[in-house]
């Protein structure tokens, strides 16, 4: 198992090294983060894989958080790129062969064109009643949601309260997912849930700790809500970790890449393959 994982990590590292010069990995910055938002079109340009990010309203602030925009858009751009390299997945590309990712609101019909959606910094998320109903409908129809990058007790409380509006815990309890679950072995055998910090924090502490909230974020968690109909995981929560930053920032610092990106991509690929089969 360890040998397989090591091979996978080496593959990831090799791929990253080869493509580290790829311009797409480095065209980022504060300005672009606040650039135009690519709202999902009414009709998707193709049926290839794409990532849709949920645009939501933040009702509170988290340190170093940026609300729904956190890790947008390069988290998904880089992830899609790597996904197409590491797997046979055909990703949606524009005419310039660049990955196409989209943003959707929970109230948009376009949400239902994206069987896979992500959200970051969900410790600030506030859901209206209509948004909660739409999210539940989306998930029960077969949609898959991965929320990431929220840290500490307060963020968890906020998120768990909001998701509880859509999926009441009495019906849809949140569970910690065992590492024996099939979601951790769809392509790479994931043996631990990496605690990944954002690159600024990592630089700030010189890589000495990965607890962005100190003792309030002692370790990362992989939690989930299952479909009561068939037991499939339909909501994945990577808590006290910022997996998407290991994708978004993979090209900014080789040390950061080496420490976080192989694990981040391994987890990302496994979760995505699970979402596409379950």
């Amino acid at each position: 198992m360890f040998a397989r994982r090591r091979i996978a990590l080496l593959v990831l590292a090799a791929v990253a090294a080869v493509s580290s010069l790829a311009s797409a990995q480095f065209r980022r910055g504060f300005g672009e983060r606040n650039g135009p938002v690519r709202m999902a079109p009414a009709i998707m340009p193709d049926s290839d894989f794409t990532v849709c990010r949920i645009m939501y309203t933040s009702v509170r602030r988290e340190a170093s958080g940026n609300g729904w925009r956190t890790d947008y858009p390069y988290g998904e751009i880089n992830f899609m790129t790597r996904l197409s390299q590491l797997t046979k997945t055909r990703i949606s590309r524009n005419a310039a062969r660049e990955p196409q990712q989209w943003v959707v609101r929970l109230t948009d019909d376009t949400l239902f064109n994206c069987p896979y959606v992500v959200a970051s910094d969900v410790g600030t998320m506030g859901l209206s009643d209509i948004e909660a109903r739409r999210l539940r409908l989306y998930l029960e129809k077969g949609g898959f949601l991965w929320v990431d990058d929220f840290w500490g007790t307060a963020a968890w409380a906020q998120w768990s309260r909001e998701i509880g509006k859509a999926l009441p815990p009495s019906e849809f309890p949140i569970e910690d997912v065992s590492l024996n679950d099939p979601i951790f072995s769809t392509q790479v055998n994931v043996t631990r849930i990496p605690q990944i910090t954002n690159i600024q924090f990592w630089r700030g502490v010189d890589g000495t700790t990965t607890r962005e909230r100190g003792s309030d974020s002692p370790e990362s968690s992989f939690r989930a809500i299952r479909d009561k109909r068939d037991g499939r995981i339909m909501v994945v929560m990577t808590f006290n970790t910022d997996v998407a930053d290991s994708w978004e920032r993979e090209g900014e610092d080789p040390a950061y890449f080496a420490q976080f990106s192989p694990d981040g991509y391994a987890l990302g690929v496994d979760v995505l393959l699970y979402a596409m089969t379950h």
Binding site: T87, K88, T89, P115, D230, M276, H278
Partner: peptide, 17 residues
């Protein structure tokens, strides 16, 4: 299925019951 795609998920889900 020769490539990961959502058709597999939804087909499996449709006949799961």
């Amino acid at each position: 299925e020769g490539e990961p795609r959502f058709e597999m998920k939804f087909l499996r889900r449709a006949v799961a019951d």
